[in-house]
Design a protein around this nucleic acid. Structure first.
Lengths: 250, 250
DNA sequence: CGCGATTTGTGCGTGCGTTCACAAGCGCCT
DNA sequence: AGGCGCTTGTGAACGCACGCACAAATCGCG
């Protein structure tokens, strides 16, 4: 996934070219958004500075890990004091490329796509869904959240015109690969895929996949395992400090 | 052979309660659902057996990794031939605890929750949302996909009565922690959290988090990085055979 | 001005996950 | 029956990530 590659020379390089962090560990990158969210909350709560301990707790990680993560993007903390919240917010936003709101194209306005189109959480965190597409003529022309659904054949035009670099696929699995091909051909280099299938894209295009059923299946495994354990050790050998559940088993 | 946990001698090895795989690597567990999906597709396509190479391609992973993953659950392949698709499907389903359909409670029937309640992908992959809850009286009583939305104060009763072990939180972030507390108190031990916040739960309760904005922010980072790179190395050192993007750059 | 309390930044050991490479095993063909 | 090609299963090496523990640095106070 982290296979980077030049080429795909797209668009204007003028605006915000900086000597950024090409070697940030992927695990760190995945946690930065979490820190950013926690920091935003802290900033809203009026906090000026925050210690690594407090921020780590708010982000649900180990404090040493947090410090190491942040150290990768420079020294923005003060020993004995902590981190400047506003400064860190700005820095993380810069690293994540969130200094300007990014345009997102959403393909597939079915059940899930409809919800995503109306999801407020995107707008407040650096993204704006600027175009909706579908192949179903019954959905084309419909307006969702003030945005009209267009036929997917117009995707390339719109994507280029509105400088859209991120696409979201919320179609059935059978349609996902063709849609991905269209997205790639339209110059989109980042895809968030909600369809339960593997996408094949050329190098230089990043794909992240979110599969809701898989998440549940992983939980199911642990549930199954826990059930086996309680079945085996039914005597109640409380080997962990789980709080007793009240009002159950009656 | 993969000798797993010789102890835990629990009487009957016959039916379904077995000393399962308590030490399966977490990374492997996270991939098993992907293998299962690929295998299901292969089975539907009429394939009887499949090689690790083919299955790995269908699941989007390295074949060595796939073999090692599968080896953790026993020898279900035949050298020189491949894996028996049906057998492997059954085995993975067994390991993941998907031999019976699991009941899921969904809390928060807003924008996203509504979509999840109607998402067909759950039903076909081992889960059934059997109860919907919300705190908003305007939503309580509404019927979604043939299921009535109940007030969250009834969650504990319903969860116990219907033996629900998995809960999905699709509420705003501000409501997520109280909802999680309610779920835990109702005896639910697995939570899938769509709210952008960290949940605090007692030991023994598993939480998985899906944050849609974070996924986009991770993509944004790579997008930003790619943009910087193309800005720096604009000459286009095409060292890979990436398909040229047409009609971009205007 | 110096000292102690506090917190960052990081070197290092450890464990996990990934990948390579190959021996072992299986079926098929002659 | 025997050999050959193919595929699995796994030992071993490698790299990454995590967490501990501590030195370095800063602030506040007497």
């Amino acid at each position: 996934m982290s296979q980077l590659s030049p080429g795909t020379g797209s668009g204007s390089p003028g605006a915000s070219v900086g000597p950024d962090f090409p070697d940030l560990p992927e695990a760190t990158v995945a946690r930065l958004p979490e820190y950013l969210r926690a920091l935003s909350n802290l900033a809203e709560a009026g906090n000026d500075t925050v210690s690594s301990e407090a921020l780590a707790a708010a982000a649900g990680v180990n404090s040493a890990k947090l410090r190491k993560d942040l150290s990768h993007l420079g020294s923005y903390g003060t020993r004995g004091v902590g981190y400047d919240v506003a400064l860190l917010v700005g820095q993380i936003e810069h690293v994540l490329g969130l200094t300007h709101r990014r345009a997102v194209a959403l393909v597939g306005v079915g059940n899930l796509g409809h919800a995503l189109a109306g999801y407020a959480g995107f707008g407040s965190r650096g993204f704006r869904i600027t175009a909706l597409f579908d192949a179903d003529p019954r959905l084309v022309g419909k307006t969702i959240n003030g945005l009209m659904v267009r036929h997917i054949e117009h995707l390339a035009d719109v994507a280029v015109q509105e400088a859209i670099a991120i696409g979201v696929i919320a179609t059935p699995a059978s349609a996902a690969q063709p849609v991905a091909d269209v997205l790639v051909r339209a110059g989109i280099t980042s895809i968030l895929n909600f369809a339960p299938c593997v996408l094949s894209v050329p190098d230089g295009v990043d794909v992240r996949k979110v599969d809701l059923a898989i998440e549940l299946q992983i939980l199911s495994f642990h549930e199954h395992r826990k059930a086996s354990l309680t079945g085996v050790a039914l005597t109640g050998v409380a080997q962990n400090g789980v709080a007793p559940v009240e009002g159950v088993g009656g």
